[in-house]
Amino acid sequence: MEELTFAAALTDLASMAPEIWQACRETALMLAVGLVAAIALGGPLGIVLYLSQPGQLFANRWVNGLLGWTVNLVRSFPFIILMVSLVPLTRLIVGSTIGPVAAAVPLSFAAIPYFARLVEQTLREIPRGVVEAAEAMGASPMQIIVKVLLNEARSGLISSLTILTISFLSYSAVAGVVGGGGIGDLAIRYGYYRFQTDVMVAMVLLLVLIVQIIQFAGNRLASRLDKR
């Protein structure tokens, strides 16, 4: 292995710019699909989990128990095993099992119950009395969900989404290794398998930077929305 100088590393990275850019786009795609699935399906699931709890608007032991059990089941799979188990489903939906779109399937699958639990937790912090006041004023269940629950929990929901995004940035690196591509994949392919330490370090620094930005933006937005 030739000696690594800063200048050499820079030219090396510069020559790889298109590949790095490609990896960023793949990571962004995996995350975007996973987050959209989490919000669109995990969000409502979390609301149902919350509302079906004893003492809540639609208290139902069976619904709550069944949903809670299913969520726990999916969440107990180590991600890499979940990914492998979902190969048939992925092939069915995407038609292929490699590439960022294919990797987005198991990512979404893991993101949905994860976000559902985060939503449930966040909603629990709303005082019961506030919901009851809305009930007493004649609000419909839909009005209570949208105008009271989601609005009162909005800052917590943004924090939850921040946590989810950051966790899934690292999940997406795992998904990348088995054919999804992305920043994590690039770091491992060049840095780990081909001993190009400069590429690995650069990719890790890039991930560090992305995480910091996401957390900073999440905190800022959450505190701006919080009027408590």
Binding site: P127, G129, V130, E132, A133, E135, A136, M137, G138, A139, S140, V148, N151, E152, R154, S155, L225, D226, K227, R228
Partner: peptide, 22 residues
């Protein structure tokens, strides 16, 4: 119909129960 009827019945609480984000 109960929701409509409740709109004719205001309620005030010991713990106020206001919405913090409004």
């Amino acid at each position: 119909a109960l929701r409509r009827a409740r709109q004719q019945l205001g309620m005030v609480f010991q713990q106020f129960n206001l919405m913090a984000n409004r």
